[in-house]
Amino acid sequence: MTRMPSAVRALVTAAATLLAVTVLSPTARATPEPKAPREFVALSSVDPTIIQEMRYPYEHNFVAAPVDGYQQPLCILTKPAAQALHRAQIKLLRKGYSLKVYDCYRPQRAVDHFVRWAKDLDDEKTKAEFYPQVDKTRLFADGYIAEKSGHSRGSTMDLTLVRLPALPTRPYRPGQKLVPCYAPKAERFPDNSVDMGTGFDCFDTLAHTDDPRITGVQRTNRDLLRDALGAEGFVNLPEEWWHYTFKPELFPDTYFNFPVARRSVAGHH
């Protein structure tokens, strides 16, 4: 039998030892992703009729990339918030409208991604659409970006109205010409929602819910959304016509970081 040279034998022994340590050492194992508390649910399990057009798992948003923590295009909310949306939806369906959500629970890692993007003043790929008139150095001071978001507490969502029957929304084409988010509806990025005067995530004072320049049909649509949600306990953020929080919040002081994924709420009903 051929004897293994001592140097080779030493290498083999060292490799075997390292393998054993790697397999057995708890620190070497991947840390499991946190799961949502039982009070969180997928909105579709409470109301499958509410349209979901989640923007942050994809690249058509103000950071021009899929956002950290969005592993699936899914609306996750605290159960009371989801149930209140369901009540509002029932009333709106009778009037020929549906709610449509763009974003719901948002993990802290996504907020951190927004902050990194806002601090990178050289990255202005989306300026022509999302903040044409705002200097990027002003995004924090003007309140468009913050290091904490109510979305991370689970009772806040971004949403709009769609007139039924809902038409399909043309998908974003990478590299397409960007149009200001406050351009006339026929010119800006196509969306099957009603005309609210600006697109979603428009960093502009025209997005303020009660901006006096918003009149006519656009004003009627904003008021319809606010009245429908206000009747069920939602409070609007005055600077963003699409942003609503269900009150009282279940977790008013907790900023969660579990990923937006079905497994985060698996088994929650």
Score class of each variant (00 low, 15 high):
A10L: 10
L161V: 07
R55A: 11
I51L: 10
Y102G: 13
Y56A: 03
G69E: 01
P252Y: 04
A65C: 04
R3T: 14
R29D: 06
A228W: 07
L164C: 06
A141C: 03
N257K: 05
A261W: 04
L237E: 14
I90L: 12
L19S: 15
L24R: 04
R213V: 12
L225Q: 04
L161I: 09
R173N: 12
F40Y: 08
F40W: 07
L250F: 09
P184M: 03
A10T: 15
T22M: 10
F234C: 01
K35L: 15
P174H: 12
L250D: 07
P174C: 09
R262I: 03
G233K: 00
K91E: 05
A261K: 08
S25C: 11
A146H: 11
S45G: 11
A141Q: 09
A118E: 00
L43D: 01
D120M: 03
V134M: 11
Q133D: 15
E240N: 12
V12L: 12
R153A: 12
H86F: 03
P107Y: 08
T198Y: 00
A166F: 14
R87Q: 14
K177S: 14
Q133T: 10
V260H: 03
P168F: 01
T205E: 09
K148E: 13
G216E: 08
L161D: 08
N61D: 10
T209C: 10
A36V: 02
E240A: 13
G233Q: 03
G154R: 07
Q52P: 04
T2E: 11
I145E: 00
V23R: 03
R222Y: 12
M157F: 15
P57H: 02
V235K: 06
A64I: 01
L224T: 15
E240G: 08
D123Y: 02
F200T: 12
V67E: 00
R9S: 13
S44D: 13
K35C: 08
A231Y: 12
Y244E: 02
P34G: 03
N221R: 02
P5F: 07
Q71E: 10
G267Y: 00
F62N: 02
Y182R: 00
L206I: 09
L77S: 02
M1Y: 15
H243Q: 00
D47V: 08
K119V: 00
T160K: 02
D210A: 11
R87D: 13
P34M: 03
R226E: 00
W242Q: 06
A231G: 08
W242S: 09
